[in-house]
């Protein structure tokens, strides 16, 4: 095989991690959604490329699902959502951008170290792909923890799911059924989160989830 072929896959996986960091840095909502779309596009390209390498035609379907839902429908819907809610404003972060980025780097280091130890027998490139996937998952989770805005938490969740797809397709390919069900779960999560955001907005005039704590009566 030409050495460039796995290198391209590797490059795309690295791009996903990089875009996760960009998400973590970005504090305004419209660009955040666009970055998520870009990350999903990178993922779709990666999966399509894997379909070529592994000669696994079902991965093309996975790539198609990713392209249609995560690159087009969900970002467009999210854009529409925030426009109708009139929240084109800065999102506030809790930890602060600097510490969040530092933590993110530490997490990437952790996933690298972990994969070096646990899968020493596996091919180097595949191993690093999985390390990247784990990094994307952890960064998505970090995003959910650090943000207070419900929209960016949803984006964090979907970015986490991108990491799962990356892990599944990077090595040998998940069965298609699992793939489709994961895709649908994300879609349903999106719908639920969308309705949730509308409802808390209607009720409290904000999408800051801190008001929920006040509403539960545990905080003055």
């Amino acid at each position: 095989m030409i050495p460039l072929v796995p290198d391209i896959a590797h490059f795309l996986a690295g791009l996903l991690v990089l875009l996760s960091f960009v998400q973590l840095y970005q504090s305004r909502l419209p660009p955040l959604i666009s970055i998520f779309a870009a990350q999903s596009l990178a993922l779709a390209t990666f999966v399509a490329w894997q379909a070529q390498i592994q000669h696994a035609p079902h991965l093309v379907i996975t790539a198609g699902i990713t392209l249609i839902f995560k690159v087009m429908i969900i970002p467009l819907a999210l854009h529409g959502l925030i426009r109708s809610l009139k929240i084109h404003r800065t999102v506030e972060t809790v930890v602060g951008i600097g510490p969040a980025m530092m933590t993110g780097m530490a997490l990437v280091g952790l996933s690298m170290a972990l994969m070096m130890r646990t899968s020493a027998a596996v091919d180097v490139v595949v191993r690093e792909d999985i390390a990247f996937a784990l990094s994307v998952v952890l960064l998505g989770l970090l995003m959910m923890v650090t943000r207070r805005n419900a929209v960016s938490q949803a984006i964090g969740f979907m970015s986490l799911e991108n990491g799962l797809v990356l892990a599944g397709t990077g090595a040998k390919g998940m069965p298609l059924v699992v793939e489709i069900s994961v895709a649908f779960s994300v879609l349903i999560a999106f719908i639920v989160v969308g309705i949730f955001i509308f409802r808390i907005r209607e009720r409290f005039d904000t999408v800051d989830i801190a008001v929920l704590d006040r509403f539960r009566g545990e905080r003055p």
Partner: peptide, 12 residues
């Protein structure tokens, strides 16, 4: 009685 973000933080 923790907040949603604290729960997420614990999981993380």
């Amino acid at each position: 009685y923790l907040t949603i973000r604290r729960y997420l933080g614990i999981v993380f």
